[in-house]
C-alpha cells in the first residue's frame, strides 16, 4: 500500500434492525484505503450486506433501526448526506438484480444514473456502449431489462453502477445468478477497473479461491463483528479460526494445511492461498525426483 489515503472510515459502528434484538453490526472499526480491492467474507447473516449498506448511507438514512457510530466516506459523514448525494461517489450493486431495474430498455436503465448526475446526452451514448461492452451485453440496448435472464440482469445492474464512474463500487454477491464463465468475467472486470482507474472495489463474495487471487484485503465478518482483517495470506492462513466460524479456505490452502497436519510437509503457518502458489510450493517440496 504505497498511498495510504483512507476513503471509508467506520468508527464504532453498531446497527440493530428495527424489530430485532441482536445487533447486525457490533462496534465495527474499519478503514478502507483508496484503490483497494476488498473482499468481505462471512456466512449468510454475518453482517456483510448490512456493513455494505452503511457505506453509502442507506443505513442509517433509509433503513429503520438503531444506529451508533460514524461512517466517513470520502470526507462526508453519511449521517449528514442523503444517499442520492453519496451516490455520486459510491456505487452499489445489490444482490437481487431484478429489484434494481426500473426502465423500459437496457440503454435507458444505464442512462438513468447518468441523467441524474447530469452527464451530457452526447457522452451518454458512448458511456452506455462502453459499459455494456465491459459486462458483455453489447447489442442488448433496446431490450427490456425484465426480459433478460437472471445473469444478464445482474450484469446490467453492474453496468449501471459502473457507468456513473464512482470512486468506490460496492457489490453484494454480484455473481449469485451468473454462470461460472460470467463469474470469472465479473471478477476480472472489477480487478481491471481497480487497477486501471484506481476504483476502490468492495465485494461480498463466497468464492474463496477467486477472492484469494484478486483481493488486496480480506475482511471476515462473524455475527456482526470483524474477526479477521488482512491480506489474503494473513487471513487464509488462519485455517483454524476460519473453520471454527464455518468458513471454507481455498483448496490450495486446505491441501497444504492437511499435509502439515499429517506431518507430510512443514509450512510453519505459511500456507499458499492460490493454486499457482501451491503448484510452485509443491514443485519445490516434492518435485525433485521427477
Amino acid at each position: 500500500m504505497e498511498d495510504k489515503k483512507p476513503i471509508i472510515e467506520l468508527k464504532d459502528v453498531t446497527f440493530t434492525y428495527a424489530s430485532t434484538e441482536t445487533p447486525a453490526l457490533k462496534g465495527v472499526n474499519l478503514t478502507i484505503y483508496e484503490g483497494e480491492y476488498v473482499a468481505l467474507m462471512g456466512l449468510n447473516g454475518a453482517g456483510k450486506t448490512t456493513l455494505q449498506l452503511t457505506f453509502n448511507g442507506v443505513i442509517p438514512n433509509m433503513m429503520m433501526g438503531d444506529f451508533e457510530g460514524t461512517v466517513i466516506v470520502s470526507g462526508m459523514d453519511t449521517d449528514e448526506y442523503p444517499v442520492r448525494e453519496m451516490a455520486k461517489v459510491i456505487g452499489l450493486v445489490f444482490d437481487n438484480p431484478e429489484f434494481q431495474l426500473s426502465q423500459m430498455t437496457v440503454a435507458e436503465e444505464i442512462a438513468l444514473g447518468l441523467e441524474n448526475i447530469g452527464t451530457p446526452p452526447a457522452e451518454m451514448h458512448r458511456i452506455i456502449a462502453e459499459s455494456l461492452e465491459i459486462v458483455g451485453l453489447s447489442g442488448f440496448e433496446d431490450r427490456s431489462p425484465f426480459g433478460l435472464s437472471g445473469g444478464q440482469q445482474q450484469r446490467l445492474s453492474i453496468a449501471s453502477a459502473l457507468a456513473m464512474k464512482p470512486r468506490i463500487v460496492v457489490m453484494d454477491e454480484p455473481t449469485s445468478n451468473v454462470d461460472p464463465i460470467g463469474k470469472e468475467e465479473i471478477f476480472a472486470v472489477a480487478a481491471q477497473l481497480n487497477r486501471e482507474r484506481g476504483m476502490t472495489v468492495i465485494m461480498a463474495e463466497h468464492e474463496v479461491e477467486v477472492m484469494a487471487a484478486y483481493a488486496d484485503r480480506i475482511i471476515v465478518l462473524h455475527k456482526g463483528e470483524i474477526v479477521l482483517n488482512g491480506t489474503p495470506h494473513e487471513v487464509f492462513t488462519q485455517v483454524d479460526t476460519l473453520k471454527s466460524i464455518g468458513l471454507r479456505v481455498p483448496q490450495a490452502t486446505e491441501l497444504a494445511y492437511q499435509l502439515d497436519q499429517k506431518r507430510l510437509a512443514s509450512y510453519a503457518g505459511k500456507y499458499p492461498v492460490t493454486t499457482e502458489e501451491a503448484v510452485q510450493d509443491l514443485t519445490d517440496k516434492f518435485g525433485k525426483g521427477g
Binding site: N56, V58, M62, P82, V83, R84, E85, A87, K88, G91, L92, F94, F99, Q100, S102, L112, G113, N116, I117, S157, S160, A161, M164
Partner: peptide, 8 residues
Amino acid sequence: ISLESRAF
C-alpha cells in the same frame, strides 16, 4: 434504495 443509490 437502489434508485437513490443511483443519485435519483
